[in-house]
């Protein structure tokens, strides 16, 4: 069953690699979102407030 699934993924030209890159992008986006949520206050203090002050 597992071997058949892998064979199916591999037999379609580029399908396996496309799934791979989609998964990688999905993980990366989620990582960024999680970290931004967790560090929102720190990001405000360290980056956005000085940036806002500079732009003013």
């Amino acid at each position: 069953m597992y071997s058949k699934l892998i064979d199916a993924v591999r037999s379609k030209t580029g399908l396996g690699h496309t799934l791979m890159v989609l998964w990688a992008v999905f993980i990366l986006v989620n990582y960024v979102i999680h970290q931004v949520i967790i560090n929102w206050r720190s990001l405000q203090t360290v980056i956005f407030e000085p940036l806002r002050a500079f732009l003013r």
Partner: peptide
Amino acid sequence: GPVFLLAIPIGALLGVYR
């Protein structure tokens, strides 16, 4: 960190571990 989450499903799905 997300390395495990990134790599292991790829290994399983693309037959790297076969």
